[in-house]
Structure formats: C-alpha cells, structure tokens
C-alpha cells in the first residue's frame, strides 16, 4: 500500500510537533523515521496509524483519504514502544484478540481463529510460549508477541514505534535481522520509528531523517550517511567532527588562515566544516593548514582516536581524529589534520 503524507502539521499547544511534512512511502517498502526525541517522528507514525489527528494536511492510503477513517477502520498493524500487551491474557489470547473482536460477516469460527493464531505464533517462532502471560516473557519474546498480534489482522501497513528500544544490545541486533527477513516474506509496507541510527541504516530501504518537526533528508542508508543534505543530518548520523570556519571570496578560512579546501558552493559568511573522524588524517603540522595539540589518545576496540585541541581558532575546539596503527602520539604533541572527505554548510 502506498502511503502519502501531504503537508501535515500538528501542534501540541504551542509546540510544533510536525511542521508541514510531506512524504511518500511506496508499496512494500521498509522506511525508517529517524531522529532525536522531540523531532516529531512518533507523532508522524501515530498520525499515519490514526491514533493522532493532524491540525492540517492529508494522509492517503493508495490514494484514498485515510483521515476520514478511524484507527479501527484503517487496518494497520501497530507495534507499540513498550509492546502494550494485554497483561491479563496469555500469549495465544493476545494474538487472537484482533480476530475475536470482529463482528458480523467478518467473524471467524473458533477453529479458524486457532489455526490462524498458531500459524502466526509459528511465524514469529514462539509456538511454545502460547500459554504464558506477558509478565513471564523476556523482552525479545514480548516483542515477537506484539508483532504477531499486530499481524493477526492481516494489515497492509505495519507501523513500529521504537520496536527494539527496550531490548538489550545483543537481542536487538538479532531481532533486527529477523524483522527485516519477516518484512520481505510478508506483503506489507512497514514504517519504523527509531532514534538509533545504526538500526535505521541497517534495516530500512529508505531513511527519513527528522529534526524539529521537519524532514531533513529522505534517502537510502548510503545516501544519508555519505551525502548528508544538511548539517543536522551530518551531526545526527554517524560521528562528526565540526570546525567553525568562514567563507570569504570563495575560499574557506579557519581562524583567519586559508585552508585550501573547497567551500562547496557555500556563500560568503560563517560556515561549518563537517567530517567523519575516520576521514581525517594526521599530517605534518608545518605542512597543513589545520593543526593542534594532542590532549589524549583513546583506544576502543580496533580504533584509536586522538582528541586534538586546534591552534588559532577562536575558543577551544577539540576534535577527534583517527590514529593510524603503529603511530605513537604522546599528549602534547603538535599534529596537523587533513580531512580527506568533508562537507561545508553555511552556519
């Protein structure tokens, strides 16, 4: 099912949760809404679901107006952040709920309900937990129950609100792959809300980066990581080092010194030079425009990073740079920095 969000605005009192947001989600896609808390991503998801109504704008499912339909009638599967399993029902009854509340012609006979629930429990690999209650399950198992319950109503749209937020790192990784696999098996369009960039980049076909109620960039995981459209996206996705620069007469300056870097079309005025730490090389201080003093060197896993305090900049600026293996850096050493890849944005 294609989902069209057109010019949606939503305010909570004076706070604009969504500011004229437009987005198209194609049939069968898995899209991640990625952003920090307060960016409006959950509000957008809840508006698509029908749990929240926009102040203005449109939501269309396959071209048809969805706002005139309540959440009951939209037939969307919603997986809640803390699962919201029915605590007084066992796993089987939780999954069966969506089938049991049907009325009239849609009502299934008991045998059909049992068959469908068992099939779903098998699909999410928790057949053996059918008699348990939510309180007796681990986080990962609850997540699977929530998913099976949402899938019971055969939704064409699956909406997931921070589905892995409450799980520990190892289970999270495992479930992530499994969810991706499940999405490919089912005829469903999925929208996932997350604040975890790794999750979004690994899972999604397309990533929608949101900040302050607006969409900053929509693109494939590769695009948003390698080619961030705005400084916000660069900051939010991946690690970023930032230098406060200035563009004067088409050249880039840092603290009054010409850097010899391409201003990338940014107009004259203050600018921010952004780069990934692993795209910055250490160089001979006398031969590079950016130089500074090593404050400390930290090792985590296979990488080593140096905190470098820059010379000549206004105010203390500390950046991280990758230290090649085999190079010893004592704190206090003067080093030069050479960004191999970088982006320049007007500040």
């Amino acid at each position: 099912m294609t989902i069209d969000v057109v010019g949606v605005t939503k305010r909570f009192k004076t706070f604009a949760a969504l500011d004229n947001v437009s987005l198209t989600i194609r049939t069968g896609e898995l899209v991640a809404l990625l952003g920090p808390s307060g960016s409006g991503k959950t509000t957008l998801l809840r508006i698509i679901a029908g749990l929240e109504w926009p102040d203005s704008g449109e939501v269309r499912f396959d071209g048809e107006d969805a706002l005139s339909r309540s959440v009951r009638e939209r037939n969307v599967g919603f997986v809640f952040q803390h699962y919201a399993l029915f605590r007084h029902m066992n796993v089987f009854e939780n999954v069966a709920f969506g089938l049991r509340v049907r009325r009239g012609a849609d009502k299934l006979p008991e045998a059909a309900i049992r068959a469908k629930v068992n099939e779903l429990l098998h699909l999410v690999q928790i057949d053996w937990l059918a008699e348990r209650y939510p309180a007796q399950l681990s986080g990962g198992q609850r997540q699977r129950v929530a998913l099976a319950r949402a899938l019971a109503i055969s939704p064409k749209v699956l909406l997931l609100d921070e589905p892995f937020g409450a799980l520990d790192a190892k289970v999270r990784k495992e479930l992530r792959r499994w969810l991706r696999h499940l999405h490919e098996e089912l005829p469903v369009t999925s929208v996932l809300v997350t604040h975890d960039q790794e999750e979004a980049l690994e899972l999604a076909d397309r990533v929608v980066v949101m900040g302050h109620g607006k969409i900053e960039q929509v693109g494939s995981p590769g695009e948003v990581y390698d080619n961030p459209a705005t400084a916000f996206v660069h900051d939010f996705i991946g690690e970023t080092i930032a230098l406060p620069g200035e563009v004067k007469g088409g050249a880039l300056y840092l603290g009054g010194r010409a850097l010899g870097l391409d201003p990338q079309g940014v107009a004259d005025g203050p600018a921010r030079i952004l780069a990934r730490p692993h795209d910055v090389d250490l160089a001979d201080p006398s031969a590079s425009a950016i130089s500074g003093k090593v404050l400390s060197v930290r090792t985590f896993g296979p990488t080593r990073r140096a905190d470098v305090q820059l010379n000549g900049s206004s105010g203390p600026v500390v950046v991280e740079a990758a230290v090649p293996h085999g190079q010893d850096l004592a704190p206090g050493t003067e080093v030069g920095l050479k960004p191999r890849r970088y982006k320049v944005f007007a500040a």
Binding site: L51, V71, N75, F78, F80, A84, L85, F86, A152
Partner: peptide, 11 residues
Amino acid sequence: AEEEAAISLGA
C-alpha cells in the same frame, strides 16, 4: 497503550 492497541486491532 493497551486501549490504543485494542482499538488498533479493531475493537
């Protein structure tokens, strides 16, 4: 949340 879940499931 549980009420929202119930309604989203068609109750």
